[in-house]
Amino acid sequence: MSQFLSNYRDFLKQATKSDKYHGFDVRALVRVEPMLSFLFHDWWRVEFNGLEKLPKEGPALIVGNSGSFLPWPATMLLYALMSSRVNPRRLHIVADMDWIKDERLFASFLELGFVPFSSANMKRLFAKGELVAIFPEGAAGLARPFSARERLIEFDWVKLLPAVEEGVPIFPIATLGCDEAIPVLTNLDAIAKMLNLPSFPITPFFPWLPFPFNLASLPTKWNMSILKPLSYEKAEDRDLIEETSMKQSQFAEGEIQAELNRLLRQRWRAK
């Protein structure tokens, strides 16, 4: 704990002031910090670009592509923001969490900084000047087959609506490598329906190995880069707001896909 206090002094200053309505607990972060650090620095060797583009104060929304199987890109972004020397900030990760029936699991997600998706929740966070991340591909992104890796599934524009209504700056973030870390071979819809899960992906590890090992991943090299914010004008009219949101979510999706294509080309050319 004391080590954590000295290492993350700036982050803690910021985090103590931040919104704790949903049950965020720094101690949960202290517990998982060694694992996140190992994954970030040693396992996936994340190369993070563009952190300086994010504002130091005030509300902002980060929109990204979700990796396969587990929401690792979200947690890596969380770690990058908390360990940053330049711009340490607490991250609220907004996601659809209704399908998590286990209360202990649900609570532990909330402790880390996850927030259930709702327009009211997001607007409250923006009003408090918080940094929010959202992954609008949703659960479909988690079951993306390996053959369609690094190809985005259409963004749900409704998820950008609260941000567009409030006129909050939107930053796209592209994550390369997360789809290859856990190759999803296929998705069994019938079993998913039976277990009331959004999807039931089969990976080389997943249902086969005993518990901690079935969540294992491969040590791929990750690139994460925050792109320049989308430029749009805050609208008052309802129709206009919806149109802007639709257009911006499509544009954000395109920006992320184009950045992934660029990063992939760089990776192949560098070989």
């Binding site: 190809r151 259409e154 499509q250 395109g254 896909q257 184009a258």
Partner: peptide, 17 residues
């Protein structure tokens, strides 16, 4: 230009899916 490019790329992703 970017908007048209992204529209085409999005459609390619959809058709491939």
């Amino acid at each position: 230009t970017r908007e048209v490019q992204y529209q085409i790329q999005r459609d390619l992703n959809k058709l491939l899916r």
